[in-house]
Nucleic acid binder design. Structure first.
Lengths: 215, 215, 215, 215
DNA sequence: GATGAATGAGGATTCATTCAT
DNA sequence: TATGAATGAATCCTCATTCAT
């Protein structure tokens, strides 16, 4: 049957390319994690992937494109793994639980994908915002905004944005600390991060969300 | 009299050397701020300072040494300008005030010395902690620890360290946001940062420090 | 009947091949014109043709072969379009007319086929004469020689060759100027080119060719 | 005496640089001549000069800068060697003599400096005019314009420009032929070039310049 | 001290060409 | 045939660092 032929042939070819891309992204993840985004070289990535520099450029036009694709896949996997459910379905979930589970998932994801951290920090000149950094950032931000808007429904958008930015900043700062420690100490930092976020958000939540009326 | 000669010559040389060093550090500050630490090149620093690369290497053995010295001077100037008084003299100062003034001073210092931010972020690989990054970090950390230990006297050292780390992380995250905005929005972020820190620390403080008993 | 199969299959293949070749040559023409011969890349040609690099190499062993074939077809088309009639049928045609019409046709052909210019100039190292450049050159040269020998019948071959080379050189130089201008200015350059050629050749022609005796 | 010291020290340093620059330009001349401008690589130039690539880039920011400097020096030397005297001092000089001597000098200069040719042709896409090509071109053009305006005083500027362009084109075309031959054949081409130019210009000159009235 | 020339390995990227499918 | 992945040497250019002067 020519059907299988005609369908499988191209599929296999594409498959090889897909495999290479995956392999290159994996290598890039390793290199970015090891040396940081700025210091990472395309040659090093190619070497790590066991291919020639030319091969890398057959799939990516430059370093940033790699980072962008890597970021995209990361975000995609995040969504696959944890669903859109960073936002709690039930708005009566207590803040502790909402934040706690979000942080836990965030941390877990990061430990599985250490590149995430490297990509989020990028070349780190306050002004220069690179695309991939920005893409990751924006995606995370909007997810946080979603979550927050569900538990802070009456907040004006500008405040919501600011609060989201703050939460993301705290997340990132906390993550750095978490990753820098191990074992019990790491757990303690996870708890601190949760505390910081919960306490920061608590006054904004008001009496809704199952909190006893403070009066 | 040879005495004056022997004394003045070296003195003058040292003075010239000091000037050179200051000049180089200023140039380095500019370049680090503009391009970020990793991307900054020693040649660019020398050029910015108006000297030859060779001259730079007469005073600093390598790029990192420049960053370290720059960090040291920065910390020194911080102490000069604001004294040891990040720690409140009066332990009865309300938390709002203590945090508020510390944040204000921290932000002000950063706006005057934009390198600070660049140095604090450094090449940013969670594992690789470079010396100069570390020095700055450690200094800041110990100042924060001092401050916190004065308002949280009964806290065990390990908890204190963790809390200090968290505060520094939040500071840095907040600073990034503050620097990324201008005018009223910047002020709003300053306030958010204060809020976050105050709320994070508040439960740890207890009834001391002039807080009305919550009961 | 297997006859049709055996005949049609190859025929179809050849037909397909011819189409591919034409397609590739057209693409090559575009790329050579746009970027120049030296800077043109085989990958770019393949891309422009909408085929893979491998396909290109199935029909041409290398870049030069493409240029050679392109030049051949160009010369062939020139002959098709304008006949062998660069040489005037009637040797009594006045020089002005002969040169004028030859130049006009030459210019017209070039404007229709801008590659021509790119191919004629080639990598341009006085010594290194590449094959395709040479082929074009030689063909043009012999046509000019034909033309000239018809109007300068008694000239020794060495002189004829030299004169032909000069005419071709002037042609090329003039063409460059013509192509570099537009509208009235272009026309003016066309006229200048004609003038230059006519005046150059005029003394060689003598009283033959319908020129009034200068005495 | 410190005077000599203070003056000689910097002079010697600059001298080393100057020597390197001269050496690099010589190497560039060789490489440009051998491989053509487009195909010439900076690494090849450095290798030819016996220095590392980095050294080359200490003196020239890129390949074009080398070509520009080379062109400038070439033009400068042309002026040094032959003075401003491409333009005949005496306007009564017969055309034959004026053109003849100009061509002779032009050819002689080119034979001494074969790069000249390579630089004048450049990357050869009719549109793309590179700076160094242009600079050379413009300089030559203006010299020719000077010469022509002295022997064609009543010509409108637009015509003069066109005529100059034509002459330069013919020069270049002729030069190519001259360089492609040797011995007697070369001389014959030199004569042909002179003929072509003289005949092209003659009708424009009119009765001035010592020509017998044609009537 | 100061200069600036020199280095050479390494950066990103391209390209003619080959090869497995 | 056709594909497109693969190559690897070569491109231009940069940079931390050294060294003769």
């Amino acid at each position: 049957m020519p059907t299988t032929e005609e369908k499988d042939q191209p599929r296999r070819r594409q498959a090889r390319g897909e495999r290479r891309i995956a392999q290159l992204l994996e290598a890039a993840a390793t290199v970015f994690t090891t040396t940081g985004y700025t210091a990472a070289s395309t040659n090093a990535i190619a070497r790590e992937a066991g291919v020639s520099p030319g091969t890398l450029y057959q799939f990516f036009p430059n370093k940033e494109a790699i980072a962008i694709e890597l970021g995209d896949r990361l975000m995609h996997e995040m969504r696959e793994t944890y669903g859109e459910a960073l936002a709690p379905v039930d708005p009566t979930t207590p803040l502790e639980e909402a934040v706690g589970s979000a942080v836990d998932r965030f941390i877990a994801f990061n430990c599985e994908h250490p590149v995430f951290f490297a990509l989020m920090h990028g070349p780190d000149i306050p002004g220069r915002i690179t695309e991939e950094h920005d893409a990751l950032h924006a995606t995370l931000l909007s997810r946080i905004e979603d979550l927050l808007s569900s538990i802070l429904p009456d907040t004006p958008p500008a405040d919501l944005a600011r609060t989201s930015h703050m939460c993301l900043g705290m997340y990132k700062a906390g993550l750095e600390l978490v990753l820098a420690h191990e074992g019990a100490e790491r757990d303690a930092y996870v708890q601190e991060l949760k505390n910081a976020l919960i306490r920061y958000l608590d006054p904004l939540v008001g009496a809704r969300l199952g909190h006893p009326d403070p009066s």
